[in-house]
Design a protein around this nucleic acid. Sequence first.
DNA 1: TAGATTGTTAATCGATTAACAATC
DNA 2: TAGATTGTTAATCGATTAACAATC
Lengths: 225, 225
Amino acid sequence: MIELADKKVSKAILMRLPMYLRSLKNHLGLEETTISSTVLADELDLNSIQVRKDLAFISTKAGKPKMGFVIADLIYDISSFLGYDEIKDAILVGAGGLGRTLMSYSGFEKYGLNILMAFDLNEKVIGTEVNGKKIFHLSKMQEIVKRLNIKLGVITVPKQYAQQISDLMVASGIKGIWNFAPTIIKIPENIAIKNEDMAASLAILSNKLTILVREETENKNKTII
Amino acid sequence: MIELADKKVSKAILMRLPMYLRSLKNHLGLEETTISSTVLADELDLNSIQVRKDLAFISTKAGKPKMGFVIADLIYDISSFLGYDEIKDAILVGAGGLGRTLMSYSGFEKYGLNILMAFDLNEKVIGTEVNGKKIFHLSKMQEIVKRLNIKLGVITVPKQYAQQISDLMVASGIKGIWNFAPTIIKIPENIAIKNEDMAASLAILSNKLTILVREETENKNKTII
DNA sequence: TAGATTGTTAATCGATTAACAATC
DNA sequence: TAGATTGTTAATCGATTAACAATC
């Protein structure tokens, strides 16, 4: 019997994998064919043991002592592990500033995300296109999503509408939601959600900055005293 | 002698604090004055013990048995802990789609971030304004940043320019960088950086979605077999 | 008072790092 | 061969959760 080895991945690893991918692609571009865990670790400010553990976790081929890892193999393994190789169609709701920015960004395809079209309520934008992607009236969403069997939805509406839109998406059969509205959305158990939380990012940066500035002030005082 | 209790905050806590803040503001808006750790925990899908630990860590006033925490106090404590109460001026480099979106978003002030102006190389946008914020030629940046003693920089340029812009920012005296370019930037020790890594977010969502869909398929097969 | 809810100490869990033998 | 670099087992570290006494 085949053991599907339903490995549970930690969030920490999932966040590092795209970092590896970037580095690896850089090195491949530089005509290199292999790479050691130390080089990767140094570049990404990680521990080399951690890098080896992570790579062992996702890769199908082991690294070789003295030689390291085959870059192309790693790229392939990480990409498929992350599902970047199978393009997932998505719809976006809220064709305002952020929504339009995401629509015009062509880089998501690299990560397996393809925003097909958008929905909005604003008559001014309905019927127009952004980056070749049509904007429809929100009332059309459910039918289209069902018909095309779309599984991913991006929410870029003002926060007061986020919950409604999310409910509508779920009702339409969407299974994964990428939420950019700065609010918490309630979803059923069997739906995946990722909140893009800029406030949290800012909190972290703000804290780092505060500590830095404080340290510098203290050091200055020391020399004076 | 005063012990400054230089508490080292974990990233995990820093990411939760903005979540608390949101919830608390909601409840305050609902005319409530106190809240228990269980209510907060349920709302945010956290453990109530964890909530109490977090709150104990940042708050100046203890909660009271049976009554819970005073919402207004918590809001004040979290805000000041995160530095949201002291507005930090920032500049932005790269007035393209994403840059302009960030410039037009007025919500950052709530988090203590005020984007004063932007810089770019594109003659078409130089001299124009977005949301009342002027766009200058990049060559003006260093002087302005120094003169106004600005400590925060936002990078929204294409990835191939990100490193140069970062170097320029550091040379101008900027201490904290919020990087939206999908690339790794090398910075000196004494500079704070936060990478807004959409690829990592997508990786996490993509993985959740894959697991979900796989489970559903397996369950369906079970019933058939 | 009785019960809800706090804060703290101890236990658990998971992730990171260290040590080291295996090997190309 | 000698040395660099791997993968693995064990140790450490930190964060989360459990247990429970304190108290409003």
